[in-house]
Amino acid sequence: MKQSTLIWTILMVAGGAFLLFQASKGNGRVYVREIPVEAQASQPEGEEQVYRWTRYQQVTEAEKGEPDVRFSLSRTLGLWVAAFSTLAIFSFLYGDNPIYKFTESVFVGVSAAYAMVVAFWTEIMTNLYAKLLPGLARITFYPDIDSTARPDYLYLIPLVLSILLLWRLSPKGSWIARWPLAFFIGATAGIRLISYLETDFVGQLQSTVMPFIVFASDGSLLWIKSLRNTIFIVGVVSCMIYFFFSIEHEGVVKYISRLGIWFLMVTFGASFAYTVMGRIALLSGRLVFLFNDWLGI
């Protein structure tokens, strides 16, 4: 038997035994509270019409003995699918394998379709369909739309642009998608130009304009504040000089730009540390799911 197969087998058997043990203790089960819903028709035809169904709210295991609380098969199954998915992705750490590839493929499919569905219901239906056909929208998906709303035909323009955008998928005439693309690029450029200049250029320069030497109201020198301001201004200026590639980095400029590099290295060092912090937090989040939600440790 190959070493890797042996390790896999031991891991699987040990993991399976542990899971069986945990499951026998009742962990990994989800309980829900049944909440009956009674809804009255908004526009009853003739006599009063009442619609009834049941809503389910997840509860903690401690509440499982209560009368309206019951075991939820679909959510329990979901919890185990979620746990399996988590372990399947983690299995990539040992090495690429078919289970990982399978879950990765599922992920790609689900996420693309998820984004499409959300975009469809949130933006396309509410901001295009309901604007162009408010009457039809009212009797189908959005009964709350104002009954006096009239079609806004201006929205035909984005409809046409959108169709042209989707034309990109067609084997012929896909150049027409450049029109909506141009609108998109033009709009992005337009809003970014002003915002970046206002906030990131003028705003940032304004915030850097501060005194080198700071005095207190009684006239005494606040030398710590002065030192910090000086370090700050020197930092910004030296980094900017380093970014200034149109001049030769010789003589004084060379030394200043070298100082700039050091400031940038401090910046990157801090960014690295914060990135590490973030990544570890993501792992903790996942392990909390496995340990608390699934295994009940």
């Binding site: 984004a115 499409m116 975009a119 949130t122 396309i124 642009l161 709009a187």
Partner: peptide, 14 residues
């Protein structure tokens, strides 16, 4: 309009 096109971009992606 820009936002609508962004929504259609999701469909294009799919």
């Amino acid at each position: 309009w820009f936002n609508l096109l962004a929504a259609f971009a999701f469909i294009l992606g799919g």
